[in-house]
Amino acid sequence: MDSLQKILKGCLQHRKADQYRLYALFSKKMFGLCQRYAASYDEAQDILQEGFIKVFEQLPSYKGEGRLEAWIRRIFINTAIEKYRQRIYHLSLDDVVDYEGHVNQNHGPGTLNTRDILAYVQALPVQYRLVFNLYALEGYSHKEIGEALQISESTSRSNLARARMLLKDKLGKELKVVYRAI
């Protein structure tokens, strides 16, 4: 804890070495999060970079209340949402409907690994992906999602249902087998 405090102090003093230490501490986890919210590796990289720049900009406002990781995580989620808002005006039809086009591998039961699942989530249409991530993985309510994405609660519910359906098509058979057995 002392060393984290030291790193934070160094970051507040704009010491590049400490900024790098903070980056090294959280970059892997945050890049994993970025990959979930992004459609591609490049987009995840963009979110990662923008997210960390915001972390360093906003660090003076971090008062030590709550876990630092949770605070950083929130910044990255907001960055991903902002990215979505910027992008929403340029959405093509493919972004909405072309799910099969992105993921077309067939897996037998028990062969799915983290990389496959990540690929399925990344391949979801952008709004479905965001809603699914926020609801299923971050624990947001539909009301919160609606406010964040500037959509109605019912749209959020509908997006989530569609996201689950698309994922179910890919994962469903295996998952049903697994969960019925439990």
Binding site: S27, K28, F31, Q35, R36, Q45, Q49, F56, R164, Y179
Partner: peptide
Amino acid sequence: HYIDQRIQEKLEGLKINPPVESWVHISDAL
């Protein structure tokens, strides 16, 4: 929902090495 649960189990806490050049871009911006 079992889909949510299954995916969360797999992706929660996922760690992926970012590309090396990411830090260079962040550093330049800082």
